[in-house]
Amino acid sequence: MFIWLLWACGGVAKESVMDSGPALGSALFNFSVSNGVRQNSNLSDPLSGAVYGSLFHAEEVSATGPLDGAESAADVEVYGVDLTVDEVSVITWTSPAIPPRAYRFLGFFDVDGNGDTTRDPESGDPVTLPSVNEFTIVSDTEVAVTISFDLVYF
């Protein structure tokens, strides 16, 4: 059982794409929030802002976040995500080409707008949970993934 670092800044090393393994693939993200986030009284600001996060190999993410030494396969910065009305964001993000395998996304929705100064969530920012947002990259394919922020950080 149980959590719970909801978000932890990962390492900065990127997936090596230089070796001759199977053909690479990519992911196309858009973003959403759960009803629990949308109705949450602890939400600090309207559901609009930047998304910051990282992709990790799925097996390197535990219930408490990335394992010690886990390296991000790609870092995510997406500006202008607006979920004040839309259930799913119009804005998308496309990953670089990465090896086919299972990944998890960990990140936060910077609705209070200070992600330029701190890349950690603050009270009132929606965050991902380590147990969700897992997807599998397939060779020569762009996999569509809707990332869900399921809890408001406190």
Binding site: M1, I3, L6, L151
Partner: peptide
């Protein structure tokens, strides 16, 4: 198994 915990 991995419940969403609210931390204070």
């Amino acid at each position: 198994d991995d419940p969403p915990i609210q931390l204070f």
